[in-house]
Design a protein around this nucleic acid. Sequence first.
DNA 1: ACATTGACCTGAGAGC
DNA 2: TGCTCTCAGGTCAATG
Length: 263
Amino acid sequence: MPELPDVEVFKQYLESTSLHKKIDEIEMQGRRLFKGISAAQMKRKLKGNSLASAHRHGKYLFIELANGGWLVLHFGMTGFLKYFKDQAGRPSHTRLLLHFSNGYHLAYDSQRKLGEIVLAADPASFIKKKQLGPDLFDPAFDLTKFRAILRKTDATIKSTLMNQKHMAGIGNIYSDEILFQAGVHPGCKTGQLADRVIEKLYSEAGRTLEKAIEARSDPDRLPSSFIIPHRRSGENCPKCKGKITKEKIAGRTSYFCPECQEC
DNA sequence: ACATTGACCTGAGAGC
DNA sequence: TGCTCTCAGGTCAATG
């Protein structure tokens, strides 16, 4: 689930529920999610502290701590946040739980433990260490920069869009959507894309991600012109009514319309 | 430089 | 119903 639009929704959710509340206690489960941090360290840092602000870069959520430092969350394939009051609301694979003094709780849940929870001095140093490319919504990430990335590589367009070192935020689902909206086949090599196709990809990437955030990244709320709600092979393409095809491209299952998408 | 594969984890859904 | 198999929206390392 958690690609750029999902994490943006998590960020807004956290901002509207969990800022500026005193953390009385924390719970941790799933050792390997907390890379290089012991439970004691995490507790020392968070207990008595509060969350001051949130920032997103690609698929990472950075949470500023009132007393300095940042909590960094990555959601892997199955992570999400939940703010709740009663125990009944506690999600079943809670890995990090913050107990606030107002009686509410914030849970980071991840069934498959493929995410990451760490502490960082600040977002910039973490982004540098991870070698993440620019966030898709960074104002400095303009068409010129996008074109330069596509011109210096010759991989499939799908893998280039998903490569977090080139640009941060796009995963398997939304790469399929962007390519569908732009009418580009996921297996095209970047070297064979015309300038005008690159422009189209750039504008559709921004538009698609914006629409996804508006729809809270919920497939049921996405425009019916999107391929995501029809992401099953054999379903009809929302544009041409042809059949949607499933194929493994760039190592990931890709859905596309062979009629509408070409190189 | 790029593609492919498997590993990391757990559970849902398909197929029998 | 119950079992087994396959697959899943992410990332990383090893291999060709």
